Simulated assay, not measured.
Amino acid sequence: MRLRQIEVFYAIMTTGSLRAAAEVLHVSQPAASKVLRYAEQSLGFALFERTGGRLVPTREAQIMLPHVNTIFGTLSDLKRLTDNLRYARDGHSITIGCVPSLGLSLVPRVIQRYHAAHPGTELTVDTLHSTEIISRILNHDLDLGIVFGDYVYDGVSSHHIADVPLLLIDGESREGPVMLRQLDPVRYIGLSENDPTARLLDMAMEEAGLCAAPSVRVRTHYMAAELVRLGAGYAIVDALTVLHHPGLPKPQALTPPLHMACRVLFRADYALSHISQDILSLLRNELDVALAKLSH
């Protein structure tokens, strides 16, 4: 099948009629019908049955559809890539992805400072989970990804920015630092098992002999902190979330202390642009300022 024939087939499958498909493709209905007829002739089997004035997909068409979806997904990726290349050609744009907890704490401050100093630069920021960030970096959709944890992927490089402490927040206040084995597993609000912080905590709790199987798990540190604020239990989250989430109980340090690495990810085959380097410098500076507040 030629690409135009695939486009007509896909449009009919998604809109449900030849008339609607022609409108989507901005062609006449007879022209769309002609392309469909040629497609069926080249394939040697029918794609649609004509029933009561309607086009009903054949079994063969239903089998083909997932493969056609893949083709259009690839075409969509290609369009995003060409857009990125076109708009970034002058070197005055950057696209950043960050995990949600950093998107609600550190990254807005970095973006505000950079934008104030470079108002002509186009800045695009998405909050995504780490696996999405890595996928989009490899797909040329992101210039930089800011994450927690350690990641080793072919084609992706990383810069270590800082080690961010993990802190206990609990409405039932206690003097810190707190040992993990002192915690009540029943009240524990856990993080998603896919979160690198959750994996670190699960191992640390197991080593401390604490059998913690939280009845509530959430995907973001910010939501865990909000549940603590509402009195649902206690959580262990990154220090940046604690610093930027109002109304939380006084955070407590853990003993032994636990930290999560904050890293910036980027494509291994590209040198960092001057914009990326400036963003990295601001990230380090803002992290130093934020972490210094913990000692006061």
Rank of each mutant, 00 (worst) to 15 (best):
D195M: 07
L243C: 02
H245W: 03
P251I: 04
T197E: 10
A235H: 03
V218A: 07
A239E: 13
A239D: 15
P249W: 00
A239P: 11
R217E: 05
I189H: 01
M223I: 11
V228R: 01
I236L: 04
D238Q: 13
V218S: 08
D184L: 12
V186H: 14
A235Q: 05
L240G: 13
I189L: 01
M203Q: 11
P249F: 02
V228K: 02
D202M: 13
L201N: 08
M223Y: 12
L180D: 10
L227Q: 07
Y188Q: 02
T197H: 04
A225P: 03
P249H: 12
Y222K: 00
K250N: 06
D195F: 08
E207I: 14
L240R: 14
P196I: 11
A208P: 01
P196T: 09
L227N: 03
L254H: 06
I236A: 06
A204D: 07
G233K: 04
L230V: 06
L227C: 03
S215G: 13
L227G: 03
H221Y: 01
D184N: 15
P249R: 02
A213S: 15
V218E: 05
Q252E: 11
A224M: 07
E226D: 08
H221L: 06
L200P: 01
K250P: 00
T220Y: 00
R219S: 14
V216M: 10
V237W: 00
